[in-house]
Design a protein around this nucleic acid. Sequence first.
RNA 1: GCUGGGGUGGCCGAACGGUUCAGGCGGCGGCCUGCAGAGCCGCUGUAUGUGGGUUCAAUUCCCAUCCCCAGCUCCA
Length: 477
Amino acid sequence: MKTSAGDIQFFNTLTREKEKFVPLEKGKAKMYTCGPTVYDFAHIGNFRAFLFEDLLRRWLEYRGFKVTQVMNLTDVDDRTIDAARKLGIPLEQHTAQFIQAFFEDINALNIEKAEHYPRATEHVPEMVALIKKLVEKGYAYRGEDGSIYYDISKFKDYGKLSKFKVTELKAGARVKVDEYEKAEARDFALWKAWDEGDGEVFWETDIGKGRPGWHIECSAMSMKYLGETLDVHTGGVDNMFPHHENEIAQSEAATGKKFVNYWLHNEHLLVEGKRMGKRFGNYYTLRDLIKLGYDPKAVRYLLLSTHYSQQFNFTFEGLEAAKNAIERLTNFMYRLLEADGKGGGEKIAALMNRVEKEFGEAMDDDLNISLALASLFEFVREVNSLLGNNMLSKEEARGVHSLMVGFDRVLGVVGEVQGEEKLPKEAEELIHRREEARRAKDWKTADQIRQQLAVMGIIIEDTPQGLKWRIEKGQNV
RNA sequence: GCUGGGGUGGCCGAACGGUUCAGGCGGCGGCCUGCAGAGCCGCUGUAUGUGGGUUCAAUUCCCAUCCCCAGCUCCA
């Protein structure tokens, strides 16, 4: 059975084909994952992207790769400046609270930490250096307004990611020619000369007073932390053009090297069939959902359970289903801890081999999570059946448990399942009284006590092997 | 207009030329249980937008057609 890395395939936007993942350096994966623009709370559509990136990261780790992930925090751009201006507070003060909120949210969603979270405002010198290089090489020019633009006609491969033809863009009806003073409408700003709208937000640099354009931060920061060429770059489909296209243009023009080997793009989240977006007002933040009583883990499961390249329609019905699916997995983990049966021998070993193989092959195939989950649930059902027949020894159950923990290191939805929990004294007392009541067939008292314990967050179950209890997690939500 | 992604059972979602078209959720019934919970088993009537074609065989390939969604200068 194959459990080693080497067979992972990704759908590469650059080639529009599934390709075997071959890293630059054996056993290592360098990824640049698009992060948030911190002008407001991120919504769950944003989190779909971050969850996809998390799944990708976790899968590479599962396959033994040492991952170096960079996630940028865009803390200076038109929107952050506008938002701070409207509130009349300094830019840093405005973005700080949303950076903090962002980390709280990804923590709640059990998203693994990236190695680096570079902020645009802290990398202006790197960006300026890159822009200077592009000017020197003749890829950029200064416009009449003092801003510096990238001349895409100089970059032969422009459009290779999004498959747009430059000439068509030029003639495109929606190009806003008035927006900037550009020699050609399709050129984009590398450096924006200060104007009144920027207020206090500007840097005095060799290339003038102003601020960086949007795209340059990703080129500069990925180079700084990952080198001139990286393995994987991810982001939402909306960023494919122009953002990622421009990143390629900037980076490859500056270095003369290929910027990214594998481009992965996640599709959008829809709400009631329409794209979720801040400009449409039909969005939920994670905080909204938590306020409504939903577990962030359910949100995680829901957003993860559909392949990243599919548009996904968010519904509360789906969220409910996700919650129940996690519960099934969690219950399974508890049952494993309690198992103490005769032993299933060959059967359980075969089941474990199969699920490990199927789960792995599915995930290797461009993170086919649906198929991976299918094999996982099938496994759960079959092992549950063995458990029901008391056919699983303590030893075997422990083996299954650690296998499941391994899967959950990828999925991140179950979390710690503790066997040895402490029961409050009064609860112990109540359980004792209930047992007595049951022995006396005083069902009314027994049910009353069970209800009382439930209010305390303690779940009681009567099984053929005797009474079982556990403390309900997430009572606070 | 140009460039992409889709249309699969009550809902969500795999598979993509061939054993019964996974799996989850929901519903119903059964087993177990004092009841409940968990779990297991069964069922959820001919599920692949429509019309053609290729093929021994199509959800899967081809053609046509309808519908939905997205991108097209700063929205993940």
